[in-house]
Design a protein around this nucleic acid. Structure first.
Length: 617
DNA sequence: TTTAGGG
DNA sequence: CCCTAAA
């Protein structure tokens, strides 16, 4: 699914074109920033994206603005254009579906389940979309909840009216916490079909208090939000806009968000569609007190009826609320409960301590949730985003890689290697990483060690490194042959590689391992066996790198030359353990500079090594 | 072609 | 990384 976005980009004319990842980022921010638009869930496993609105005006307005037709007072939109969009959306869905199929076909763990929910409010002939979604869902296999850190886009949909559908990300079910009384919410409940009275009951069941609000829309929305907020994140309820359906465990969604907001009918005092408010200078609109009050009221959940009544009629600042909910759930989700809602400052009606920080990072369970202060239309709204660990394509098969190594030692090294990959190393382009929840993996490492006594010493270093880390292992795709080595013609007629590919720790460790096994000098062998998939690493490169490693290991490590602890060059700092290992190997193979220790042993060691290592150096 | 070593 | 001598 994530591939979908990462590979496609929407051209102005609606075509889908390949996009680079950087472009993807931009697109994502754009989408996120767009108040009328969608939030894109960049977190693979568990988060939730949400978009929604109950009507069409915002979306339409969005379209209009996109097409340069923005007319604040008008809610009309050219049906043709809308249809065009719809077609496009359908096309996207098809693509997504295909992607999904592909993922499934190749057994990629990447296809985490995702559900897409379409705004059901408008019973339109375009049920196709919905069907696609359902099909899509049903095609998603029940997979192990292997959370990937890959950016993952849950898709979004539009119904005919143009309202943006909701996004729901699937993930592993969470423990159920307290939730409201759902006794009256058996099975599937479509809020749309409920009368005001029923809605009131539902409201009561949801919030534990009564309301006198007569506005159906408002009630539905409130209930949606309430349910979403309090329990959906930990239950198996699927929320289709105003419709709650119980879902199977496997498909349990971590969290869902009811429509948060832009009621089409709601217009602010200036008569502008809500959406457009955001597109204009927001500051000019916000100061109006009632607007702000409303937001607070709406969020507090304990406002009085008068306010409630009025609230439905006033403008809402959607994103903020949504963001807060998002953050809240996000927090609960990962570490129980922490942090209060960071309310937007600017209206003194919230408790002072609640808006101390506008930007915060919540790190929990190895996952980092970052919220950034985003200038959505200048409103200073907090937008959740997820730190990206991986920006490239997903990896392929993990086991394949492991099998690749001739010995257990190799495996261990490989594992550790991957663990280290995450740290302070540039993402290797050709070496896509897929993160694997590794809490369980260390055992494997140990395991591997059992069978290889002699080499144990060498690799204990590496294992230590690996175990020390939070063990987020990554795997190398078995074939990264896809890297087109970009070369640039040099003035002298030759060609030279354009980009120096930074050595990944992963690669370094491969190299080290290779040298340890075959001895320094047999670069082509090492190349063939350890870097088969790295088309851009030549044997000469390996040699050069090794040379550098040697230098590094012997200069910096033992005596700690003047500027010891890493001159924080953006360059990758080679972890000491690896350096130690390099040095060890070097000494063993008599590559050590004569001046430094080991000179005495050099001769004999070398001989031994040579004999042991197929006898040639 | 592959290694080794200098640039 | 590149270039090249030497094997």
């Amino acid at each position: 699914m994530d591939k979908f976005l990462s590979n496609l980009q929407v051209e102005g004319d609606g075509r889908l074109v390949p996009a680079t990842e950087d472009e993807l980022m931009e697109v994502e921010s754009l989408l996120i920033d767009d108040r009328c638009g969608m939030h894109i869930d960049a977190d693979p496993g568990q988060t939730v994206g949400c978009i929604s609105n109950e009507g069409s005006s915002s979306w339409m307005a969005h379209l209009e603005s996109l097409e340069g037709l923005s007319q604040p007072k008008s809610k009309k939109v050219d049906p043709d254009k809308l249809n065009g969009r719809l077609e496009y959306i359908e096309e996207m869905l098809q693509k997504v579906k295909e992607e999904e199929r592909l993922h499934i076909a190749c057994g990629s763990p990447d296809c985490s389940s995702a559900c897409v929910i379409v705004d059901s409010q408008c019973s339109d002939p375009h049920d196709k979309l919905l069907h696609i979604d359902e099909k899509l869902q049903s095609e998603i296999p029940l997979q192990e909840p292997v959370p990937s850190l890959a950016p993952s886009l849950r898709q979004s949909n539009l119904n005919q009216s143009g309202s943006v559908g909701e996004l729901v990300a699937g993930g592993s079910p969470l423990s159920v916490t307290t939730k409201p009384d759902f006794s009256i919410l058996k099975g599937e409940i479509c809020l749309d079909n409920l009368s005001i009275k029923e809605l009131h009951e539902t409201f009561k069941a949801t919030f534990g208090r009564e309301t006198t609000v007569k506005d159906k829309q408002w009630l539905k929305r409130r209930i949606s939000m309430g349910l979403t907020n309090s329990c959906a994140a930990s239950t198996n309820f699927l929320i289709k806009d105003n419709k709650f359906a119980k879902k199977g465990n496997e498909e349990g969604c971590n969290g869902m968000y009811g429509s948060f907001a832009k009621d089409p009918s709601i217009v602010n005092q200036k008569g502008l569609p809500t959406c457009l408010v955001g597109q204009l200078d927001y500051h000019k609109v916000v100061p109006e007190r009632r607007l702000e009050n409303h937001n607070i009221d709406d969020y507090s959940g304990s406002d009085d009826h008068k306010n409630e009544q009025g609230a439905a009629k006033r403008v809402r600042k959607p994103t903020k609320r949504y963001i807060e909910e998002f953050s809240e759930v996000e927090s609960k989700e990962s570490s129980g409960r922490l942090l209060n809602l960071a309310k937007n400052s600017g209206h003194g009606l919230i408790s002072p301590k609640s808006h101390v920080r506008l930007v915060r990072n919540v790190s929990s369970g190895g996952r980092t949730v970052v919220t950034r202060l985003d200038s959505l239309g200048g409103s200073g709204i907090q937008v959740p985003c997820v730190s990206r660990v991986r920006r490239s394509r997903p990896r392929k098969n993990f086991m394949a890689l492991l099998k690749f190594n001739p010995s257990g030692m190799g495996m261990a090294a490989t594992l550790v290697k991957k663990a280290l990959d995450d740290h302070s190393f540039p993402p290797n382009d050709g070496n896509e990483n897929r993160v694997l929840k590794a809490s369980s993996t260390p055992e494997h490492v140990h395991h591997l060690f059992v069978g290889m006594p002699e080499k144990g010493k060498q690799f204990s270093v590496m294992s230590a490194v690996g175990l020390g880390n939070n063990m987020e292992m990554k795997m190398n795709s078995s074939g990264d042959s896809d890297d087109n080595v970009v070369t640039v013609p040099t003035s002298k007629g030759g060609v030279r590689r354009k980009h120096h590919r930074a050595w990944t720790l992963s690669e370094v460790m491969k190299l080290v391992e290779g040298v340890s096994r075959y001895g320094a000098g047999r670069w082509s062998e090492i190349k063939r066996l350890f870097f088969a998939s790295y088309s851009y690493r030549t044997s000469v490169d390996l040699k050069d790198k090794w040379r550098n490693l040697l230098k590094a290991s012997f200069t910096q490590t033992p005596p700690d030359t003047g500027m010891n602890s890493r001159k924080n060059t953006g360059a990758m700092p080679i972890p000491t353990p690896i350096l130690l290992k390099v040095r060890e190997l070097a000494e063993m193979q008599a590559q050590a500079p004569p001046n430094l220790s080991s000179t005495k042993v050099a001769g004999s060691t070398r001989k031994i090594v040579n004999e042991k290592q197929t006898g040639f150096l």
